[in-house]
Each structure stands twice: as C-alpha cells, then as structure tokens.
C-alpha cells in the first residue's frame, strides 16, 4: 500500500510539473473548421483550429485530424504518421507553384488521407507529394487543376502506397512514381480510380524501379495512359482497367528490364495513335486470371 501511495504521489507531481510548465500536449485527435482559429491544441471540437498546417503541429504522432465543415484548409507538410479525414467539401486550395500536401517523414511514417479535394487552380504544381514515408494511403480524394503532377510518390527509400477510389483530373501526370535515391522505390496499387488528363502527359507514370498494380481504373485524355520507362526494373501489372481516348494507351520502354503483365481483362481501345505499341515498345505479358 505504501509503495502504491508513493507511486501515485510521484505520478501526480510529475503531471503537475508538466502542466505548470505551460506545455500544450499534442492531441491524438484534432479538429479543424473554417470557422475555427489557430490557437490552443485543436483537441476540442467546440474550439477547433482553422488550418491543417497548424493542426499538424498540435497532433501527436499516429493521431488524426478531422475537418468539421466544408471549406479550404490550406496546404500542409506532414513530417510524421497522421490520418487526415475530410467531410464532403473539405478542400485544400493551392496557390502558384505550390504543393497541396507534402509527406516527408521516415521509413516508419504512415500517412492516410481520406475525403479531401485538392485544387491547384491551374497554377499550383502538385496535389500530393511523398518524398519519404513507410506507407501512404490516399482514398476518396479528388485532385485537380495542377500544372504538373496530381500525386507524386518520388521517394528516398522504400515506400508502400495505395491510391483508391480517387479522382484525378486536369493534370500533366496523374500518378507519378519514381525514386530519388539509389535504393528503395515506390511499391503499391492504384485501384478503382478515374484519372483524366488534358491531352498531354501520362496517366500513370512508372519510373525508378517502381512496382505497381493498376486495377479497375479509367484512364483517359493523356498522351500516354500508362507509361513504364525511364529507369531499369519497373514492375507493372494491370487488370480490369479501361484505358481509352489517350494518344497512346500503354507504352513499355524496351531494354530497361521492365516487367509488364496483364490479366488480359483490360479494355485498351479507342486511343488515337496506338492502343499498345509492340513495335517501339515492349509487349504486355498475358498471365491471365487465376
């Protein structure tokens, strides 16, 4: 009993000392609202903060930021594991040459983004950019009106990613996968998403020994629907996609050691120059369904 009493006193003293120091503890769950203000710790939905960038600094590693209202929550950089969840109409409006979300953590960083619309207003550069992370999940998001890439996984080290049920439009590259270091590369899936361009660029660009499975997507209105090349050792596997109204449907660079497999259940048709280019590009290997 005495031992337990001493422990309790010690714990209480420690807590009191921490609070007396005026520290605001990072919250596991933070709230933002366009009617909020950037003060306090964002942990109370009755006094939410205003921007994602501020809430990121007030949320503990592994925590979650929720929006409460439609509106613009501004760009942010994510340096740690976080989950961002938007209500319908939650926006990230991005200005000239900007990036909507920059994910720059380490090999154990896990970032999930759900329910946001990223709008580059035809002047911003990139919707969502990951430079270093262990895992990146983008789900039920809309990314549109960016000069360069909708979503860039361009990593220093290995990063797993999943892009699901999302809509990417009016961009030069829809999904741009590559690496910035000699080791590691993006590895993941692009699933059940609609990716449409503006006549130039690439829907899904596979570079830098990336390993990607592309399934159940609609990809159109690019110069290339899917393009694998630019480095050695890319792995591309495709199933149940519709790839149409591009200049070229799917193009695999020859001589770069790329692996390109199809379940033979895609519809790659109605592209204006070529659907598949077996003369200048490598063929897709038909592995069927299992």
């Amino acid at each position: 009993m005495l031992v337990r009493f001493v422990h309790c006193v010690g714990l209480a003293a420690g807590l009191a000392a921490g609070l007396a120091g005026g520290e605001t503890r990072a919250a596991a769950l933070s709230y933002v609202s366009v009617a909020g203000s950037n003060s306090g710790d964002c942990s109370d939905p009755k006094t939410p903060c205003k921007t994602l960038a501020y809430a990121v600094t007030k949320t503990s590693t592994g925590g979650e930021i929720k929006t409460l209202l439609p509106g613009d929550y501004g760009p942010a950089t994510i340096p740690k594991s976080l989950t961002l969840t938007g209500v319908p109409g939650a926006l990230v409006m991005v200005g000239a040459d900007g990036v909507g979300l920059t994910i720059s953590g380490n090999s154990t960083t896990v970032v999930s983004i759900t329910g946001f619309t990223f709008n580059g207003q035809a002047v911003a550069s990139i919707g969502v950019k990951a430079t270093r992370a262990g895992q990146v999940l983008v789900k039920h998001c809309a990314i549109k009106n960016f000069k360069n890439w909708g979503l860039e996984i361009g990593v220093n080290g290995a990063t797993k990613f999943s892009i699901e049920d999302s809509f990417i439009s009016n961009v030069t590259y829809g999904v741009y996968l590559h690496k910035t270091a000699s080791t590691g590369a993006p590895k993941g899936v692009v699933h059940r998403s609609t990716i449409v361009g503006k006549g130039n660029g690439i829907g899904v660009a596979v570079m830098g020994a990336s390993d990607v499975r592309v399934s159940e997507n609609l990809i159109g209105h690019f110069e290339y629907g899917i393009y694998s090349g630019g480095d050695t050792g890319n792995v591309l596997r495709i199933a149940r996609n519709t790839i149409s109204q591009n200049a070229n449907g799917v193009f695999i660079e020859t001589g770069l050691g790329a692996k390109a497999e199809t379940a033979h259940d895609n519809f790659i048709a109605g592209n204006t120059t070529t659907d598949l280019d077996p003369v200048n590009g490598a063929p897709l290997t038909n592995v069927g369904t299992q």
Partner: peptide
Amino acid sequence: PATACRTFQRAHDATSPHGEII
C-alpha cells in the same frame, strides 16, 4: 459558410477562375 449566398449564379460571379462553389 456564415456569409453563404442563395444562388449558384451569384456564387459563380463571386468566384475566381478555377475556384470552388460548395
């Protein structure tokens, strides 16, 4: 949201190019 308008047309006219109406 506190100063929302009533019609899409008024909001359209008040919004910059590539902006959003919610």
